[in-house]
């Protein structure tokens, strides 16, 4: 049953691929399986974050998050993925305070998701936001993780 469902979902996403169709029931809220296609994973993981822990990047990312990028419309003011709009999505817009997610994702994978979108409803912003702006967002999303998870902050600030 489980594998039947997975193969239907795979078939659907290959046939109808828009890059970002939310497929109902495709994943649980806590599902952190990779969003980057396997043939692009090496590329994504290899990307270097040009502004890790950089205060300027974080501040600029915050500005875009609630401003022109409209990330707040879905991910909410606090990045918990609890905006009014979130109700329409399954899976929900990612909760950036989630420790497990923050730990498994590399910076490059987050950059990839912002640029290319995911097949579960994240919008691709590659055509609308510059590369620098997307890295600023990555670093703000990391900051959200650190602010809500003190252990993470300790690890990363080392």
């Amino acid at each position: 049953m489980g594998s039947w469902r997975v193969s239907v979902i795979l078939a659907l996403s290959t046939c109808l691929f828009y890059g970002f169709i939310p497929l109902a029931g495709a994943a649980e809220e806590t599902d952190v399986k990779p969003r980057v296609p396997s043939n692009k994973m090496e590329l994504a993981k290899g990307m270097a974050n040009p502004g890790s822990l950089d205060k300027g990047f974080i501040a600029a990312g915050k500005e875009i998050f609630s401003g022109k990028g409209r990330c707040v419309m879905c991910h909410g003011e606090t990045g918990k993925g609890d905006s009014p709009m979130a109700a329409a999505f399954n899976p929900k817009p990612r909760d950036f305070t989630n420790l497990q997610w923050q730990k498994v994702r590399t910076d490059g994978e987050i950059f990839w998701a912002i640029s290319e979108g995911t097949e579960y409803g994240m919008i691709p912003f590659g055509g609308s936001l510059s590369e620098k702006e997307r890295w600023q967002l990555v670093n703000y999303i990391r900051e959200i993780g650190r602010l809500s998870n003190p252990t993470l902050a300790k690890e990363q600030n080392n």
Partner: peptide, 17 residues
């Protein structure tokens, strides 16, 4: 073409694609 143009035209407010 991919998405009938959908992927290339995700546009933020005030933006153009």
């Amino acid at each position: 073409g991919p998405g009938g143009g959908a992927k290339a035209t995700q546009t933020i407010p005030g933006g153009k694609t």
